[in-house]
Simulated assay, not measured.
Amino acid sequence: MAVVTIENVDIVFGDNKAKTLPLMDKGHSRDEILGITGDVVGVQNANIEVNEGEICVLMGLSGSGKSTLLRAVNGLNKIARGRCLVRDGDKMVDMAKCDETKLRHMRTHRVSMVFQSFALMPWLTVLENVAFGLEMQGMPKAERLEKAREQLKMVSLDKWADKKPDELSGGMRQRVGLARAFVMDTDVLLMDEPFSALDPLIRSQLQDELIELQKRLNKTIIFVSHDLDEALKIGSKIAIMESARIIQEDAPEQIVLNPATEYVERFVAHTNPLNVLRGQSLMTPLADLAVKDGKIIISDDISMTLENGKLTSVQGSQGEIPTARWTPETIIANVSDNTVFIVPANIAMRDAVEIRYHSNHLLVLEEAGQCIGILNDHNFYHALLGKHFGREEAAA
């Protein structure tokens, strides 16, 4: 179910929208429009749908329009044309047409925001900062402080409740910002580069914490970032923006495998594929393997036998090779290194490489109980060297 729907949204900063919008329709660039009318095109013809429980990452370079579009979702940026719909109960509200009362209701009950600059009030304690939004909702003091304490415990800051913000580190202050947003219990959470000012280790830790919080709370999150590795790590959907336009919207794996333009391809060229690619995207399919005497030939000294699509045995030059079925709970170090692992087709590349590190053999991929392909060293090297791009393969 869609919680946020952005339809043909244009955002223009300036006083000459009547002249600027027709120029946009005629295909004039941002720089041309700036020279003709003096207006700045913030977002042009944006279309995106964010479903319940998704983390949608808007990303791009500085000035691409990602933060501008994000701020339209809670009415901070005015929409010149188009609709920005946010679910309110069983109906969708157009944030471009809200009156003051409705806008206040949406901001206090449906959409909350985490800022890059923390935006904590220095004269209030950590607990009071988290409870502030609930006070604006009119919640009684005892109830709002209790809820705020629960949220601080969730972000591991309950022991810091009576401290002031300037007594906390940057990472801790950002966690206070997360707690303040989550305590509002809104459907939609907007996050405007919340971790970009933090040290790399703290940033990675907070990304992990956000993922864990999301598993428990299942919010609908729109997250702005200029870091593709961050987007690939936390996003269930990524929308890449360039010059005020969304140029590709897709699942993280598809962004890496099939960049839509050279601009996107440059973005993904230096990403770490371990964090995003899955087994079925890397594997050698069964159809590409030779068959001899009823056996599937893996290499000069390894073959395997299937029965009704299921792996029955793997043979090596010294006889049969043992097999083991892998699950996320498997302790690989406890399994003999002379083992072929059977793994799910959607296994993360990071897990697959970890298995290969402990094993002398390939991995066999299964889907719905059927063997569909293998993962070997060639497949891993292919991905690590960036040879998996759909555009590169198409051009070859």
Score class of each variant (00 low, 15 high):
133 G>H: 05
368 A>D: 12
267 F>R: 09
60 G>E: 04
313 S>V: 10
220 T>G: 12
173 R>H: 04
364 V>T: 08
252 P>F: 11
176 V>D: 02
220 T>H: 07
321 I>V: 15
312 T>V: 15
259 P>G: 12
283 M>P: 04
325 R>K: 15
385 L>S: 11
275 N>K: 11
280 Q>V: 10
80 A>I: 05
77 N>T: 04
146 E>H: 09
311 L>C: 12
109 H>N: 11
39 D>G: 06
105 H>I: 00
41 V>L: 08
144 R>D: 02
252 P>Y: 00
375 L>I: 15
16 N>C: 03
277 L>I: 09
133 G>Y: 11
189 L>E: 01
147 K>F: 04
372 I>Y: 05
307 E>Q: 06
89 G>V: 07
226 H>Q: 14
156 S>Q: 13
180 R>Y: 01
322 P>T: 13
260 A>G: 09
181 A>N: 11
18 A>Y: 02
41 V>A: 09
249 E>V: 13
267 F>A: 10
336 S>W: 02
26 K>V: 01
79 I>S: 03
146 E>W: 04
234 I>K: 07
97 K>H: 07
71 R>P: 04
267 F>D: 06
284 T>S: 05
308 N>C: 07
83 R>H: 12
331 I>P: 00
345 A>M: 01
336 S>Q: 09
165 P>G: 05
136 M>H: 03
179 A>I: 07
100 E>Q: 11
49 E>D: 10
290 A>K: 12
320 E>K: 15
368 A>E: 14
66 K>W: 10
341 F>L: 10
83 R>A: 07
174 Q>E: 07
249 E>C: 15
243 S>T: 08
80 A>K: 02
115 F>P: 04
135 E>V: 02
148 A>R: 02
389 F>I: 10
129 N>C: 02
326 W>Q: 09
244 A>I: 03
131 A>P: 02
13 F>I: 07
132 F>H: 03
25 D>T: 11
46 A>G: 11
340 V>A: 06
115 F>A: 12
178 L>Y: 00
385 L>G: 00
307 E>N: 12
20 T>E: 08
4 V>A: 03
55 I>N: 14
105 H>G: 01
308 N>S: 14
158 D>M: 15
175 R>H: 00
260 A>W: 07
304 M>H: 01
97 K>T: 09
123 W>R: 08
18 A>N: 09
80 A>T: 15
386 G>Q: 08
50 V>G: 13
287 A>Q: 03
191 M>T: 03
71 R>W: 08
110 R>I: 11
289 L>M: 11
370 Q>A: 14
161 A>W: 14
215 K>S: 14
110 R>V: 14
147 K>E: 06
234 I>G: 02
380 F>G: 01
181 A>E: 07
125 T>S: 14
197 A>Y: 00
358 H>W: 07
174 Q>F: 03
299 S>I: 00
215 K>P: 13
273 P>L: 05
113 M>Q: 14
294 G>L: 08
380 F>A: 14
115 F>S: 01
216 R>Y: 08
307 E>P: 02
39 D>F: 05
191 M>H: 03
192 D>Q: 00
60 G>M: 03
331 I>L: 09
368 A>P: 01
9 V>F: 06
8 N>Y: 01
200 P>G: 02
122 P>N: 10
144 R>N: 11
366 E>R: 04
343 V>F: 11
244 A>F: 00
156 S>H: 09
225 S>D: 12
374 I>K: 03
306 L>T: 12
82 G>T: 10
223 F>P: 06
223 F>Q: 10
310 K>A: 15
96 A>F: 01
68 T>W: 06
393 E>K: 15
